[in-house]
């Protein structure tokens, strides 16, 4: 009898331990996979050309429109401004957290920080490709609706100092894994920006059509500035690394 119980215990215990850890790990992997899916639909791909138009509205001020072509490959982005005319020829290069602004006539690139505002409520970091899966640790806070859809509400905490936001609350749709809403917080826990996302574009990856970001609306909670980024002309194409090399950018 003793031998039987002992044998069962010997078999069951490791199985239970494996089951416990597998379940725990599975939950962690799911959140990461969820973020990876959301990141993919916000531009974290092997190579992408797209056009971006930003519209900034502020109480009592004229609307500002900025247009640029964006080349993105993983953590690298190159912005080529196309409008207004006075900004044509200007470029912004982002190599992960290294960023430079390049103007025609001023050949020395100016090193800039991710916090520096691109326009209105949008920081440089907002147009760099999103890598929340790599840059943040996620915790599932709740399940609630956002933009009329059932979502997982994740709390993302930065795992490195280089990111634009320290803490993010991120609503990801349960049905398609797309980020619907985000709130951005400072280290002290103060809410300073809100964003919402739309995905009416679509792209094809490995013969699968997936929805892709078409609009991002960012509002600054302190200054009441609202910036809308519209994404069009999306082309998925392998981009050579040399496009993101500062030494080879002919200005």
């Amino acid at each position: 009898m003793f031998k039987m119980v002992s044998y069962k215990k010997l078999v069951m215990l490791p199985a239970l331990i494996v089951l416990f850890f597998t379940q725990a790990h599975a939950a962690e992997v799911d959140l990461k996979a969820l973020l990876e899916s959301a990141d993919r639909s916000r531009g974290n791909l092997q190579g992408l050309f797209w056009s971006v138009e930003t519209l900034t509205q502020q109480k009592g001020k004229a609307e500002q429109v900025l247009k640029f072509r964006l080349l993105t490959k993983n953590a690298n982005s190159l912005v080529r401004f196309t409008s207004p005319s006075r900004m044509r020829g200007q470029m912004m290069l982002m190599r992960d957290r290294n960023m430079w602004f390049i103007r025609p006539g001023l050949r020395k690139p100016v090193a800039i920080s991710p916090r520096q505002r691109l326009t209105g409520a949008a920081s440089n970091g907002d147009i760099a490709s999103t890598n929340y899966a790599g840059d943040y640790e996620a915790v599932l806070l709740a399940e609630e609706d956002a933009a009329g859809r059932p979502c997982y509400l994740l709390e993302l905490t930065a795992n490195n100092k280089g990111v634009t936001y320290d803490k993010i609350k991120y609503w990801i749709s349960k049905s398609d894994g797309l980020g619907q809403r985000a709130e951005y917080y400072t280290v002290s826990g103060k809410l300073f920006k809100k964003a919402s996302f739309e995905y009416t574009n679509s792209i094809e990856i490995d013969k699968h059509k997936i929805p892709f970001i078409s609009k991002m609306e960012i509002s600054d909670t302190l200054s009441e500035v609202k910036t809308t980024l519209s994404f069009t002309d999306i082309v998925i194409q392998d981009i050579a690394d040399s496009n993101f090399n500062l030494n080879l950018l002919v200005k």
Binding site: R97, A111, S113, P114, R115, G162
Partner: peptide
């Protein structure tokens, strides 16, 4: 070096 999102 980009020491954090604001400091170079």
């Amino acid at each position: 070096a980009t020491l954090n999102d604001a400091l170079l």
